[in-house]
Design a protein around this nucleic acid. Structure first.
Lengths: 342, 342
DNA sequence: GCTATCTGTGAGAGCGCTCTCGCCCGTATC
DNA sequence: GATACGGGCGAGAGCGCTCTCACAGATAGC
């Protein structure tokens, strides 16, 4: 008995059929049938045969790999830093891929190496690529090289995308603060390079204009420190602020820390709403009300589109943001422990 | 001009050399040289040639894929939940893999599907697998099927592993609390199924015995809610506690929330130390002192071992935990804003 | 009973690459 | 100048699989 892995020829020999028939049975393609199917299956089981994926990919030309590409444009500290967003993206894709026997390949690219690396990936044998973090320029370039691409972040209109309703989400958040009776509502926005940040900024502005409020806002990096510092600045300029809309939870956690350090109570004195519904939101003290994006669903939809194959330039689907109520916007009366809704 | 991707034959033809020579140059193997190398490189550049990975893997038999396997045994809410730990694992591996042109394949398995899935993966063509979350039993089973395995979590002695010094880390944390003058030190441990949790429990116990302190402890799930509830229970039974060692930051964030809700100030009344140095630690209010594990380094070391090939059963390397000081254990005097050390 | 139409099966040609082997040519050795 | 050696190079045989195609054998139509 040979020490090496059994091949489809071994299976065919054992089953007493040709390699072609064995292949047909294994891929349950039509044209093989009856007792032969049984015999082949028996042989597979007895030999513990597993198809060699590389050979399959080579012979069929039909890949079974989905690439996930992240070019960190938002986050300092390098890719994936400690951002659970990527975890959610992967988590959304895995069950689907697992189910169809496809594999997931992760590419983390620095901004500098991205251009060449994208070419490399585009040339690869892949079902397609999910862009989970990328600048519009790079996304467009990538799409030009490789049509089978779906972006999870806003990009040029030609690139197929699953886009989250960042504008609507920000609008909802600010409106919520207004309904809570807040009138000095500040906003802390993310860096301009991020299209998500830009959209959230637009949503905020619309809500502010619609409500006839002053536009009190500051920019910051998408980090806890960014939020902390921005809150301090805002507090210095507008000591009377009574609510803060923050463009991401990580920043929002820093905002809450800054407010506490400056003697403001959350939510009694200042209401805070974050964005993303990340771990940062539940770990902040008090836990943060936030806008949740259906990241898992978006990632899954991206995979489905990729696999379906009929992916046209400009295809896009919009996913709404959901308001998750926690203590940072609780009404004044009773502030119970835990993550109670308001 | 053909619409399809250029192959190595196209390169060879354009460079006026044989396929073998082209291959030698592309893989910069010895035996090709001088002007030919230049010509081949030129042809590659002109054609935009990229080797087909599937064909490479098939022909060489030498795979260029590293599998990362996570069977969620710790986390509720499914795989990867929102746990940045996985992000750190991936982040640690990516630069290395990217550098050697290898790919990373992610497998997220549920506990039920794991057994068969592991067999499937073991049969695949892979440089090896990094087990980032798995029970000892499954890890051992996997190691039996596929020798090229490195675990990042404690397992049976035969399975090669990069192990974090959870025992020492917990010991350090508790000792720190003791040195701070705390004498009623409580601990909140993770679920028994997790070997990390078990080790942290051992470290805590050693420190407690060594310091002659009482063993005040509670068990909880590795979640914010788990920490919150456990802290409440502990507080009810031991209202005089003045420090809490918590087996993970996510729980610790909940602990801080519970302490605050019950009128305890952190760190003035109660010192808190978490574990992992995750996002949860910096988002908690106040930010948490915590034990940091060199997860990225461990993951990178795992890849290096896998690639080196000389991976013997029982191989293991120990990685120390590092104390990261933040406000939750700051000395009473001045509690400045931000993440100041103590 | 003969050609036409199936369906089930096997032979065999690749997929794009790596790698062994042997050839050729240049230099060292006698 | 003939023999040995060695390094650069090309020919060609696979790697394990898929898939086309041709060929049997069975059924149908005239």
């Amino acid at each position: 008995m040979s020490r090496s892995k059994p091949t489809i020829d071994d299976v065919a020999r054992m089953a007493g059929v040709s390699r072609a028939t064995a292949s047909r049975v294994i891929n349950n393609a039509p044209g093989a049938s009856g007792p032969l199917r049984v015999r082949v299956h028996e042989a597979v089981a007895r030999l513990g045969y597993r198809p060699n994926e590389a050979a399959r990919a080579l012979a069929s030309g039909r890949p079974r790999v989905v690439d996930v590409i992240a070019v960190s444009c938002n986050l300092p500290g390098g890719w994936l830093g400690s951002n659970p967003y990527y975890s959610r993206v992967l988590a959304g894709m895995m069950p689907l891929l697992e189910g169809m026997g496809a594999q997931l390949r992760v590419h983390a690219l620095s901004h500098e190496s991205a251009a060449e690396a994208l070419d490399e990936i585009a040339a690869g044998v892949t079902l397609g690529a999910v862009l989970s973090d990328i600048t519009p320029a790079l996304a467009a370039r990538f799409h030009r090289r490789c049509r089978r691409v779906v972006s999870l972040v806003p990009t040029a209109a030609t690139v197929p995308a699953m886009v989250a309703d960042n504008i609507g989400g920000a609008y909802t958040a600010v409106t919520r603060l207004h309904r809570l009776g807040r009138r000095r509502i500040a906003a802390i926005h993310g860096p301009a390079i991020s299209t998500c940040a830009a959209d959230r900024r637009i949503g905020h502005l619309r809500a502010v204009q619609r409500s006839g409020l002053a536009d009190i806002s500051a920019d910051a990096a998408f980090t806890r420190e960014g939020g902390y510092d921005a809150a301090q600045r805002l507090l210095a300029q507008h000591p009377d602020l009574d609510a803060v809309f923050v463009a991401c939870d990580l920043m929002a956690a820093g905002v809450v820390q800054a407010l506490t350090a400056h003697g403001r109570r959350v939510p009694e004195d200042v209401s805070v709403i974050g964005f993303d519904d990340s771990v940062a939101a539940i770990c902040a003290n008090p836990p943060l009300t936030t806008m949740r994006l259906p990241v898992e669903e978006m990632a899954a939809a991206a995979v489905r589109l990729l696999v379906s194959g009929d992916i046209s330039p400009g295809h896009r689907e919009l996913f709404p943001a959901e308001l998750i109520l926690r203590q940072s916007t609780a009404r004044m009366s009773k502030v119970g422990p835990g993550i109670a809704g308001s």
